[in-house]
């Protein structure tokens, strides 16, 4: 069994909370996780749409109505931004994995590049498909 008289070892505090000031590096990192996991919502919608397409015109009309309703459009728009953010942050992660761009000024520049870049790419995608 676990020893009750365990040594109280210091714990590393979580990056979000009272111990650390919010920083671009930590915030852009947690946002990668949030956007990546949130994309499961768009995946559900996409698989539902495909199943409806396979099932026939009536099921397809229902799915399409929901996905292109204002709620569906909002979810799709947010997912689109999340996808582009996760995409750019993922590319940045590949650079970090290769041991590149790890100094703070470069990492912060790339953080802003992910944020602004994802907004620009989202606007371009919307212009391409919705207009």
């Amino acid at each position: 069994m676990a020893d009750e008289n365990r040594i109280q070892r210091p714990l590393s505090p979580f990056m979000i909370g009272p111990y650390y000031r919010p920083q671009l590096t930590s915030m852009s990192s947690i946002l990668t996780r949030i956007t990546g996991n949130a994309l499961i919502v768009a995946t559900f919608a996409m698989v539902w749409w495909l199943l409806a397409l396979a099932a026939g015109p009536e099921a397809f009309a229902t799915a399409e109505w929901w996905i292109t309703s204002w709620v569906g459009n909002l979810v799709m728009l947010l997912s689109l931004w999340g996808m582009w953010y996760h995409y750019l942050a993922g590319l940045r992660h590949l650079a970090f994995d290769a041991g590149k761009a790890l100094d703070i000024p470069t990492a912060e520049k790339l953080g802003w590049a992910c944020i602004y870049g994802s907004v620009v790419l989202t606007v371009l995608t919307v212009l391409l498909f919705w207009i």
Binding site: M46, F60, L94, D97
Partner: peptide, 29 residues
């Protein structure tokens, strides 16, 4: 790493196809 590189190539093309098909009507989709 492997899957992210694969997705980096595939997802923009997929997005283009799916974005065009969405809202194009049953027969076109």
């Amino acid at each position: 790493i492997v899957s992210s590189v694969a997705l980096a190539f595939m997802v923009p093309t997929f997005l283009y196809i799916f974005g065009n098909a969405l809202g194009s009507g049953y027969d076109a989709a």
